[in-house]
Structures are given as structure tokens and as C-alpha cells.
Computed example of a mutant assay.
Amino acid sequence: MDLFDSGLRPLPGGRSESSFLAQAGDEISVVRLWVRPDRRGSEGYAIEVALMTLLRGIVPVPEVREVRRPVGDMPALVVTGFLPGERLDELLPLLSDEQLAAVGADVGRILARLAGVPMLRAGEFRDAELIVAPFPPGERTAGRAVLVHGDLTAARLLVDPVRLRVTGVLDWEAAHAGSPGDDLASVLSWAPQPLADAARAAYDGVWG
């Protein structure tokens, strides 16, 4: 696919100011430009690609279709498949308690799968090999380390509004190796009670 001949247009829903849709025939892709280094530095895009590759089949993340390294003034570019669904933060006000519980149960299952991705130690990812640079002593609790999304707000979850299932987990810029339960605690901090209770029950059904 020639990306720039495929009619790039901004990704709807405010998912990212540097993300665009590209369509060739029936195939829809998301094109993301890493115009500025993120908190992980110049390797941020490569770390995100590695995480999406690792997590395919574990949690709903897009398929990586193409990666272009930065060259001169051209930023890094990553092409992925398009994930359907609506942002959960936009859906929350429209859902009944029963619907919130259904979404929460699926969120809890996603969190349990993430907590099952082991890491050798806690720390920050430093490159595309997902080598972990340990946190300074005492900065984080020692113990079993797992993959943590790190910023799992409702805006970073896509949900099918009919089936009430999670269709996408977005934006892995804050991902790191950390403590099991960190992402659950994050979700419980913003989730309405029916969603929070169902998420905790589903998570505890695996790790309780």
C-alpha cells in the first residue's frame, strides 16, 4: 500500500492527534507518526511495536503491518490494523448497571491476562527487545513482575456497544514491568461501581 496515495484522514474519536486512517480497497489501516519522542525517548515507537507484537492473541491489540524507522526529517511511522469499537469513556454515560457489569467482566478478564505476562524484574522498557532497566532501589515494590499497561483509563479501552466486549486496548506509552494488580487498581479508581465490582470479580476469579 502506498500510504500517502491512500487518502490519509484523521482517526475519528480523538484517539490521537498523530494517527490517521488509510484505506486501500476493503482494507483499513491506522497510520501513526511519531513526530516527537515520547517518555521512552527515540525508541518509543519500537517499544510499542514490540509490545503489540507480544500481546497479539493475549489482549485485543492491532496487528502491526508496517514499520518505518525515522530517517532525516521523516519521523518514525507505524501502520497497524484498525480496531472497531467505541471509546469506553464515551459509552459509560449511556450504559445501564447491567451493561456496565458486562463490560466490567470483560475488562477484568483482560486485566487477568495482562497480569499473566511475566517479566524478570520491575522496571522500564528501554528498547525494541523489551530489555528492562530496573527501577531505582525502593522506588517500586519488589516481588513478581508482570506487564503493566500503566495508564488504563476508560479512554484507552475500545468496546463493542452491542456485544459489550472489549475490542481494543490502546496507547502503551506508559507500559512497564510492574506489580500484578496495578492495572486493576487503575481501573477501580475511575470505574462506576457495577463495572468496578465485575472487573474485580473476574480478575479475582483468575488471580484471587
Rank of each mutant, 00 (worst) to 15 (best):
A174N: 13
V67C: 04
V64F: 12
P194V: 05
S6A: 15
G41R: 04
H176R: 15
L188N: 05
V31T: 02
L91P: 05
R140M: 04
V162E: 15
E139M: 11
I47V: 14
P137E: 00
S179G: 00
S186A: 10
A76T: 02
P136H: 11
A50V: 11
F4C: 04
L3M: 09
V159E: 01
R126F: 00
L92Q: 08
V49E: 04
G85S: 08
P12I: 02
M1R: 13
W172G: 01
R156E: 14
E43L: 09
A177D: 11
V187T: 08
Y203S: 07
R121C: 11
D5C: 09
L188Q: 05
L130N: 07
D26F: 13
G143I: 13
V206R: 15
I28R: 14
D171M: 01
P136L: 14
W34M: 12
E90R: 10
A198V: 15
V146C: 01
G85F: 02
G116N: 06
D204Y: 10
L51K: 02
E43T: 03
A155Q: 14
D204E: 13
E43G: 06
T153H: 12
S189W: 06
V35D: 10
L170S: 02
Q23M: 09
L130G: 07
G104N: 08
E63S: 09
L8R: 08
V162W: 11
